[in-house]
């Protein structure tokens, strides 16, 4: 199996789709000569030319909207929105247009649009370049939401997103781009709506997304030293959500921790907690614990940033609480 970085894996999915299919193209700010602000599209301009690797003005509404119009007209566009913080600028087009065209037309239209965006704290970009806003999109019927945490998942899930007939918001985490991992020799889709169990365990289930998958795996290693057996589940697709795998895991372990980098309040973890208490109530031996950022914008000063966002030790503390060991 070849090893790719998370960044290369994402590029590989886009490039392979563009080689196979003229309907696929990519557009966004600084993605051509510069290769994207995170270097994800590096080299693609040379291979595919400026018609299919399109630099755009700084116009998030128009580029997401143009993606919608092209998708409705038979293309499979990939729009890169440089930071998920800037998705705020495109919300009308995404929420009012992309998510609803199929519904409002009574099924006449499909919108096979993929919006790739990235974000995440841990490098002091300050409050307007580091948020994790995925929960906003989970509240909107009509779109799908993906958040990959490994190179293999990023490639397979992006492939499926490109070929999905619905608008998909594909989240990448800023701190994972250099993470290296094995990917299958042949590119293949990973079904949207299927979780990955990263590690099996008996005592506690951690449901984690994005960067927190890796923090959860670290916490699980440490918990094991303490004799606590931890299962780590990454839903990978937040909408649709693989409730079955999450609930089955919690029914086995009887304890659940949900971990994400976004703020805890009204976050993805709240929905998971609701699902778990409803579908595994009789199995639970402890309240569902939520781990996430403290309720503040992401601060600049590194010491403050570190304080606000969650780490492996926060996940471990939550695991220990569910075991009555705090």
């Amino acid at each position: 199996m070849p090893a790719l970085t998370y960044r290369e894996a994402i590029r590989d999915a886009m490039s392979e789709a563009m080689r196979r299919d003229d309907d696929v193209f990519v557009m966004g700010e600084d993605i051509a000569e510069m290769g994207g602000s995170m270097g994800v599209t590096q080299g693609m301009l040379d291979e595919f030319g400026p018609d299919r690797v399109r630099n755009t003005p700084i116009s998030e509404m128009a580029i997401v909207g143009a993606g919608i119009g092209a998708a409705v007209s038979g293309m499979r566009p990939i729009v890169e929105v440089m930071y998920q913080d800037f998705m705020t600028l495109a919300m009308e087009q995404l929420v009012q247009q992309a998510a609803k065209h199929r519904f409002m037309s009574g099924g006449q239209i499909k919108v096979p649009l993929t919006i790739r965006t990235q974000g995440g704290a841990g490098w002091s970009p300050g409050a307007q370049h580091a948020q994790q806003l995925e929960a906003w999109f989970l509240h909107v019927p009509g779109i799908k939401v993906v958040f990959a945490s490994t190179p293999a998942d990023a490639r397979g899930l992006l492939w499926s997103s490109i070929y999905d007939d619905n608008p998909v918001v594909f989240f990448e985490h800023r701190t994972l781009y250099n993470l290296k991992g094995d990917v299958p020799a042949e590119i293949d889709g990973i079904e949207l709506g299927r979780a990955r169990v990263h590690r099996e365990g008996e005592d506690v289930t951690i449901v984690a997304t994005g960067r927190l998958v890796h923090e959860a795996l670290k916490a699980a290693e440490e918990a094991e030293q303490d004799g606590i057996s931890v299962e780590v589940v990454d839903p990978r697709t937040l909408l649709p959500l693989d409730e079955e795998t999450i609930v089955a895991s919690v029914r086995k372990t009887s304890r659940c921790v949900v971990a994400h980098e976004a703020v805890v309040r009204m976050g993805f973890g709240a929905e998971v907690a609701a699902i778990v208490q409803h579908q595994a109530f009789d199995y639970l031996d402890a309240p569902v614990e939520r781990v996430g950022a403290k309720f503040a914008p992401i601060p600049f000063a590194p010491v403050m940033e570190e304080y606000v966002i969650p780490h492996a030790e926060d996940v471990l503390a939550a695991v220990r609480r569910t075991m009555g060991k705090d």
Partner: peptide
């Protein structure tokens, strides 16, 4: 914006 995309 959708019309720009359709035209594209």
């Amino acid at each position: 914006p959708g019309i720009v995309g359709a035209a594209l």
